[in-house]
């Protein structure tokens, strides 16, 4: 069996775009009629995913501190490390890592789930009954992922800052109060809020592309595994590319959220 044999959604970039569009259109109705499904998916993505996010955050924060502290200490600039670490984590590493963890976890899970539905002909049955697959299956998952990832990002950011502090308290010289007071000096709300909210886009794209991969899977048992792998790969690529594309848009945002000001006379 080859991808697309189920005929649930179109294959190729066109099929992905059509699925994304159908999902967008279905959002209002889904929010009203399938709130329970959204909550179930949210709980699975956010609450069950918080453990891995927490662990990843602590490890990344501590590792970044340990690696950069040595280099900065050689130039007598280790006191600036909390400030730089907070900028790196809250603006870029945290959101991107949260998107990648979602891509790894939900990308594989959703693609495999959809592929299994294709295999046991549940998708065919839904289509035969005239059910909208995008509204019934994809939209609740996309909405749940979209809402879950920003919260996971917040948890990951906090865990990374905490990991940095753990490393500082084990090997560094700064007190907890000094570390915290220096942590957020370089940041503005206008830097942190867009960086956190952009992960909602990651959530939407990961859910949509993973579901599309699964719905285009073949009907063999092996195809379920392959769909999971393809789902992860596609989700990771989508996260990296969309992150790159969004950067200029975020930086072009006017200082409505407390960004930098430079006023003409």
């Amino acid at each position: 069996m080859r991808p697309g044999d189920s005929g649930a959604v179109g294959s190729g970039v066109g099929g992905l775009a059509r699925l994304g569009l159908a999902t967008c259109v279905a959002v209002p109705g889904v929010c009203l009629r399938r709130a329970g499904d959204i909550v179930r998916e949210f709980e699975w993505v956010a609450v069950h995913g918080s453990g891995v996010v927490l662990a990843a955050g602590v490890c990344v924060g501590a590792a970044a501190w340990l690696q950069t502290h040595r280099l900065l200490a050689q130039h007598g600039a280790e006191s600036t490390l909390p400030s730089f670490l907070a900028v790196a984590v809250l603006v870029e590493i945290g959101p991107l890592l949260a998107g990648l963890i979602l891509a790894g976890r939900a990308g594989a899970g959703l693609a495999a789930e959809m592929a299994a539905m294709v295999q046991n002909e549940e998708i065919d049955a839904r289509l035969a009954l005239g059910t909208n697959v995008a509204a019934g299956l994809v939209a609740p998952r996309a909405i749940a992922c979209m809402f879950a990832v920003p919260f996971l990002t917040i948890v990951l950011d906090a865990a990374a800052l905490g990991g940095g502090f753990l490393a500082e308290s084990s090997s560094g010289r700064a007190s907890a109060a000094l570390y915290w007071s220096k942590s957020l000096v370089f940041l503005e709300p206008g830097d942190v809020i867009p960086a956190t909210l952009k992960t909602a886009v990651f959530g939407w794209l990961v859910a949509t592309s993973a579901c599309w991969t699964g719905l285009n899977a073949g009907r063999s048992t092996q195809d379920v595994g392959r769909a999971a792998i393809r789902g992860v790969v596609l989700s990771v690529v989508v996260v990296f590319v969309s992150n790159l594309i969004m950067i200029p848009f975020i930086q072009a945002l006017p200082g409505v959220l407390g960004g930098r000001h430079f006023l003409p006379g």
Binding site: F151, L184, V185, V192
Partner: peptide
């Protein structure tokens, strides 16, 4: 699941709000 999600969201929002207020204070 709703209650669990609510607790998670509340904790995350609390952390986010605290961080934003600290940034504002800086």
């Amino acid at each position: 699941k709703s209650l669990l999600s609510l607790v998670f969201v509340s904790v995350a929002l609390g952390m986010g709000g605290f961080t934003l207020s600290e940034i504002g204070r800086r």
